[in-house]
Design a protein around this nucleic acid. Structure first.
Lengths: 116, 116
DNA sequence: CTGGATCCACTTTGATACTG
DNA sequence: CAGTATCAAAGTGGATCCAG
């Protein structure tokens, strides 16, 4: 167990139906309340939003700050450590963009519905 | 629809319970037969190995070369295009490695069973 | 407002046996 | 050798309702 492939370690943290979008918004806004996030990603249910956030929090990617007040207020933000993901996410995004172009070359630009 | 987040595009291709390991081996060996791969990843079933390989093939990451002979012989290899994944996989691996170290700092090195 | 708790549908993976 | 086919098990996400 010296230095095998740890790609999965990174994947574990990024994978989740909504994590990329969530991270996208939190990275962009620096800090967001639960409800704000929910409005930015309307299709997600509160349950999923909660669990995905908790997982990211568990991995120390985002902070969860609870204000002791009524009504409740909870703010999510990127941790310092979480920022170390920036170059990786950027790389993945870039590769994704070029991959879409590659698909054009292969299958032609006709059937672009594939990229929902 | 100019240039939203395409992180998911990359994830779609890399995600799969066995894809990272499979890619790891194919990248390393350049070309592998079905049975060889299976021996390198013993826990996977033939069914899963087949489907994961087909998905990678569909995305033009690997080649599938069938030799018309008996008994059958099929070789898998990285496509030229697939090689464009190298830096990304390397980045993910690196981040994964450092993340494991980060976990040590946070939770201590005691409960390392978490990294199965 | 920010969740937690349940229940259910759908998807993914696995076990096993069979085939050209 | 390199798969397919079939069925069962497990995992995941969604709908809905409840709560501090």
């Amino acid at each position: 167990m010296a230095h095998e492939c740890k790609v999965e370690t990174a994947l574990d943290i990024l994978v989740g139906k909504w994590k990329p979008v969530i991270l996208f918004h939190i990275f962009q806004k620096e800090t967001l309340r639960f409800g704000e996030l929910h409005r930015l990603v309307p299709d997600i249910t509160k349950k999923m939003l909660t669990t995905q956030l908790r997982e990211l929090e568990y991995h120390d990617i985002i902070n969860r700050k609870v204000y002791a007040q009524v009504p409740p207020k909870v703010e999510y933000s990127i941790t310092e450590y979480g920022k170390s993901l920036t170059p990786l996410l950027e790389s993945m995004h870039q590769w994704g963009v070029s991959h879409i172009e590659h698909l054009d070359e292969i299958y032609g630009e006709d059937q672009m519905e594939n990229n929902k």
